[in-house]
């Protein structure tokens, strides 16, 4: 018996033992998630970032758009722990408030993408046939139309603010999720347990919600966490191109591109929003990674 084989058997045995202990599904997920130490650390860090953003009005030493033209680009001091920006605003305060915007953009856009993607993917995967073909070609269309123009177009109807931008990012990034869900559905549809449910008389909607979706959800959740990071990065890229969230509202993205303009004058400034974006997106990705491992039902080590 090779080492590998022994390990496999060991794993099986332990898995059985766990089942016997009537461990609930979510407890198991949590236990496996904890194994991914970096994910655990990331969850703690991200919680801290989120808390600081949520409680920004309590923590921030100044209102975010309080100008002080007598102290522009000031170096860090007791009054301004991270210094001030080009208009003499407290960088720490803005950073905290920007966190609310950036996190909200990231989470909401990812949520929109997940819901839309799951919906389209489920319908496409479950119904198959013409519906599937039509929806998947629609995905091709969505992948091909120039999304920058959606934002420009939106400008003629609304003032493009954080909410609009979030919706736009969400509505243009669900295509990956939909393909993923569809793929899962196609694979699961012919599995024994679905066949069995059908044989027992379960019908369409019930099969989708009770049998297919729960089993397809793992990659969706993982993908969802990753999309949070992608949305935050997308917002910063749009800011760089001049199409992001516009001042005076602060986001990490627009602070980053704003501070790049003074990089030679006050080189440390650009690090703050950069590090916040980096840390947040890194944590989100690590959590996604931990979830991926934890939700993988075959993974019982």
């Amino acid at each position: 018996m090779s080492a590998v084989q022994r390990e496999a058997l060991e794993a099986d045995r332990r898995a059985e033992a766990e089942l016997l202990a009537y461990e609930t599904e979510w407890q198991a997920v949590w236990r496996r998630f904890r194994r991914h130490r970096m994910a655990l650390v990331a969850a703690v860090v991200l919680s801290l970032i989120a808390l600081s953003a949520i409680f920004a009005p309590l923590i921030a030493p100044y209102p975010p758009d309080h100008l002080d033209l007598s102290a522009i680009l000031a170096s860090p001091s007791a009054a301004h722990p991270l210094g001030t920006d080009q208009l003499g605003r407290d960088v720490l305060s803005r950073l905290l408030y920007a966190g609310r915007v950036s996190l909200a953009v990231g989470v909401s856009a990812a949520f929109i993408a997940m819901v839309l993607g799951t919906l389209v993917g489920s319908i496409s995967g479950y119904l198959g046939g013409v519906t599937d073909t039509l929806l998947m070609r629609f995905v091709d269309v969505m992948l091909s139309v120039p999304t920058l123009f959606l934002i420009i177009d939106a400008e003629s109807f609304f003032q493009v603010n954080a909410v609009m931008l979030t919706a736009l990012i969400g509505f243009t990034s669900w295509m990956g999720v939909s393909r993923l869900v569809r793929g899962q559905f196609l694979a699961l549809k012919s599995r024994e347990f679905v066949e069995a449910a059908r044989a027992e008389g379960a019908r369409g909607w019930r099969i989708v919600t009770h049998h297919l979706l729960p089993n397809a959800l793992a990659p969706v959740i993982v993908n969802g966490t990753l999309s949070v990071g992608v949305a935050i990065i997308t917002e910063s890229a749009l800011s760089f191109l001049g199409f992001g969230i516009q001042p005076p509202t602060a986001s990490w993205g627009n602070m980053l591109s704003q501070f790049q303009n003074v990089i030679y004058q006050q080189p440390t400034l650009v690090l703050y929003p950069g590090i916040m974006i980096f840390l947040t997106v890194l944590c989100v990705n690590l959590i996604g990674d931990g979830l991926r491992d934890a939700l993988d039902p075959r993974l019982r080590i």
Binding site: D65, L67, L87, E155, Q159, F243, Q246, P247, P248, Q258
Partner: peptide, 27 residues
């Protein structure tokens, strides 16, 4: 950036006079 900043300064300065300025910075 220069115009962004001017707009924001004007907004803040006039707010002190109780004049409400809404910045709209677009393409």
């Amino acid at each position: 950036q220069v115009r962004d900043e001017i707009v924001q300064i004007i907004q803040q300065e006039l707010a002190k006079l109780h004049i409400k300025v809404t910045p709209d910075i677009i393409d």
